[in-house]
Design a protein around this nucleic acid. Structure first.
Length: 218
DNA sequence: GGCCAGGACACCA
DNA sequence: TGGTGTCATGGC
C-alpha cells in the first residue's frame, strides 16, 4: 500500500500545484470557508464578487450591513439566511475579542485558536481547519468528504472513521508543514472532482491501479 | 427534472 | 452516540 507521501507525489505530478486558497486576504479566506459549506465553489465566487463590489469584505462592513442586505449579497452561495447569520456572528466575535483582526485569533497556539473557532456557531471542523491552514498558515490538516472517500478506496481507512480520527491519521503520518498540508488537501479535492467522484470507474486516474475501487470494478 | 456541491446543526431515540 | 431532516442556489 503506497504511503501518504507517495500518494501526494502522484497527485502533485498529475494535477500540478493548485495555488490554494483563491483569495486576496486571510479574512476573505475565512468568509469563503463559511460560504463554501456544502456549496459549489463557482457559486461562492459569485457571492464573494458581490461582497467585494459592496466593499463588504471586512469586519466593519459585514457588521454594519443589515442582515437582509447581507443575505442578498451572498444569495448565490445558497443557504444564504444561515450563512449571513454565521458571517455576522464570526465578525461579532472578532470585534469583541480580537479588535476586528482575524490574525490575532489565528496567531494563538494552534489548539487554542482551533477550539475558539469550533466554539462559534456555524464553524465546524472542516471550516475551522480551512481557516487555520489557508488564512492563518497554521499546520492543521483539512479533511473533507473527498478525503474519506479516496483513502477508503486506497485501503488506508475503513470508512467509519470520524473527522478527528481522519485528521489525526494524516497529521501523525505527515511532516507538519503548511505548504504540504495546503497542497495535499487541494489535490484531494481536485482529484475528487475530476476523477473518483461517485462513478464506477476512474478514468485517467493518476493513482490508477492503486485505486481499489477501480480494481474491483474494471 | 433530478442530482450534486470544498458542512454544520438541531432534534430525536 | 448515531441517524435523519433542514438549510438553498446554480450548473449540468
Amino acid at each position: 500500500m503506497p504511503d501518504l507521501m507517495q500518494i501526494y507525489r502522484q497527485l502533485l505530478e498529475h494535477y500540478g500545484h493548485r495555488h490554494w486558497w483563491p483569495a486576496e486576504t486571510p479574512f476573505e479566506v475565512a468568509i469563503g470557508a463559511i460560504l463554501t459549506q456544502n456549496t459549489n465553489w463557482a457559486n461562492v465566487e459569485k457571492a464573494i464578487i458581490n461582497l467585494r463590489r459592496a466593499e463588504a469584505l471586512e469586519v466593519e462592513s459585514i457588521l454594519t450591513l443589515d442582515k437582509e442586505s447581507l443575505e442578498q449579497l451572498i444569495r448565490p452561495s445558497g443557504f444564504f439566511r444561515q450563512k449571513a447569520e454565521r458571517l455576522q456572528l464570526f465578525c461579532q466575535h472578532l470585534r469583541q475579542f480580537h479588535q476586528d483582526r482575524l490574525e490575532l485569533l489565528l496567531q494563538q497556539p494552534l489548539t487554542i485558536a482551533r477550539r475558539e473557532l469550533l466554539a462559534l456557531k456555524g464553524i465546524g471542523p472542516e471550516t475551522a481547519d480551512s481557516i487555520l491552514l489557508y488564512a492563518g498558515q497554521r499546520p492543521s490538516f483539512v479533511v473533507d468528504a473527498y478525503t474519506g472517500r479516496l483513502f477508503k478506496r486506497l485501503g488506508h481507512l475503513e470508512g467509519a472513521e470520524k473527522y478527528a480520527q481522519i485528521r489525526d491519521f494524516f497529521m501523525a503520518r505527515l511532516p507538519q508543514e503548511v505548504p504540504l498540508y495546503n497542497e495535499y488537501h487541494a489535490l484531494i479535492v481536485i482529484h475528487g472532482k475530476e476523477c473518483c467522484r461517485k462513478r464506477p470507474i476512474c478514468n485517467n486516474c493518476p493513482l490508477q491501479s492503486r485505486c481499489r475501487y477501480r480494481q474491483q470494478n474494471p
